[in-house]
């Protein structure tokens, strides 16, 4: 499944990565190399096989419903590129 610059642009948009036109050709070529290698998967006969998401098939441990996490606002807000009045700041969001 070869991918072209349009597919690359679509994936880049979904991943919120900016890919300049100058990079697309090179990037498409690299991605095609990778996907070419990955396409070996199509050889496998897996019709009767269940997908495996985790190596150890165990179940989710559940936590008691208790408040254990402290207020860390004063510690984490300084890590933010922009904050004000206890909020993280971003350019205006239009809904």
């Amino acid at each position: 499944m070869a991918i072209d610059s349009k597919v690359v642009a679509r994936a880049a948009h979904l991943a919120r990565l900016r890919v300049d036109d100058s990079e697309t050709a090179e990037l498409s070529a690299r991605l095609n190399d990778i996907l070419g290698m990955v396409d070996q998967l199509q050889q496998a006969d897996v019709d009767q096989v269940e997908p495996l998401a985790h190596p150890l098939e165990v179940s989710q441990p559940l936590r008691d419903d208790r408040v254990t996490e402290p207020d860390v606002r004063d510690k984490v807000l300084p890590l933010a590129p922009a904050s004000e009045d206890g909020c993280f700041l971003v350019p205006r969001v239009i809904e």
């Binding site: 441990p61 419903d65 996490e69 207020d71 860390v72 606002r73 206890g86």
Partner: peptide
């Protein structure tokens, strides 16, 4: 106040992980 109940996990801090609430 805003972000007083936003822990490291809720903030998506790198390296943090979820654990499911039984209730």
């Amino acid at each position: 106040e805003p972000n007083r109940h936003a822990s490291l996990i809720d903030l998506g801090m790198p390296g943090t992980l979820p654990v499911v609430n039984k209730e």
